[in-house]
């Protein structure tokens, strides 16, 4: 069962959003997040929401998957909302004791919540339509200029993708060690938090030793297969921009332009 776990939250289906180059999606998500923090006016927000809804429809990912991400930050949202609501100075409209809610506070809260919702759903949409591997590839390619200042971009990307491969293997190993120790009377479930944490120590030691041994073996196997870093390496699945990626960039630029037009109030009638 542990073998079945998926890393990240990739939702497998075939849509135009899934087929887009991961670099486009990564850049697009970053630009989108920037765009929702540009203005505090109703019209740009309406446009941002509309854009997101259209993207979700294109992605063919069921809407409930988007909501999932929101649940995890519900507490943070309530917290931020409370702070914004009570601590924004301005024209008090309602108060209990020393705490007062201002008109500006209500407005700030509404915008803050809207921003957080759009931000979370927007980034979920990217992780739902892109495999972790594609994301690693995209990051490697986009950060490539940093190799000029001697940052190990390829190495970091390689480490990330190896880590992704070994997560299920190490989980299985943890399970095995746990069962072996439980069979000899170890108790991982009862007692208070401190006691349970102490019970984990004899689990972590063999796990770490095994992980180091694996790392050593893997390094040897990689060297035996002529691995010598990113230099002179070719790609089996190189990232190449296609027609649809150019199209996506055009859509993104149109969206950003529309945001700026609406945000600056350049069209007087609106």
């Amino acid at each position: 069962m542990i073998r079945e776990i998926t890393i990240g939250q990739y939702y497998q289906t075939d849509s135009i959003l899934h087929r887009l180059d991961p670099r486009v999606k990564l850049i697009g998500t970053i630009l989108y997040i920037v765009s929702i923090f540009l203005y505090r006016k109703p019209l740009p927000f309406a446009l941002a929401a509309l854009f997101l809804v259209l993207c979700i429809m294109l992605s063919k990912v069921p809407f409930r998957y988007m909501i999932r991400g929101l649940k995890t930050i519900l507490f943070l949202m309530l917290f931020t909302a409370a702070f914004n609501l009570f601590l924004t100075p301005g024209e008090i409209v309602w108060s209990i004791g020393k705490l007062g809610i201002s008109k500006e506070g209500i407005l700030a809260t509404v915008y803050m919540i809207l921003r957080m919702i759009l931000l979370i759903i927007g980034s979920s949409l990217m992780t739902l339509t892109t495999t972790p591997n594609q994301l690693t590839d995209a990051m490697e390619k986009l950060l490539w200029p940093l190799t000029k200042i001697h940052l190990p971009v390829h190495e970091v990307a390689m480490m990330m993708s190896i880590a992704l491969r070994f997560i299920p293997i190490l989980l299985e190993e943890t399970d095995k060690i746990m069962k072996a120790q439980m069979a000899r009377g170890a108790d991982f479930e009862s007692g208070n938090l401190l006691k349970r944490m102490k019970a984990m120590v004899p689990l972590l030691v063999p796990l770490f030793i095994a992980a180091f041994r694996r790392a050593n073996d893997l390094a040897m196997a990689m060297e035996a297969r002529c691995y010598q870093g990113g230099e002179g390496r070719t790609k089996m699945k190189p990232l190449r921009y296609k027609g649809r990626d150019t199209g996506a960039f055009v859509v993104l630029i149109c969206y950003l332009a529309a945001m700026i037009v609406l945000g600056k109030g350049l069209i007087p009638i609106l």
Binding site: S161, L164, R165, R214, R225, C226, G232, R233, T234, M236
Partner: peptide
């Protein structure tokens, strides 16, 4: 388990040729 690098069978088989700089 300690000598398979990639997350897909085909990508792992391609790892060696990639290192050798073989065209795609």
């Amino acid at each position: 388990d300690n000598q398979i690098i990639a997350q897909l069978v085909e990508e792992d088989v391609g790892f060696g040729p990639e290192n050798l700089g073989v065209p795609t």
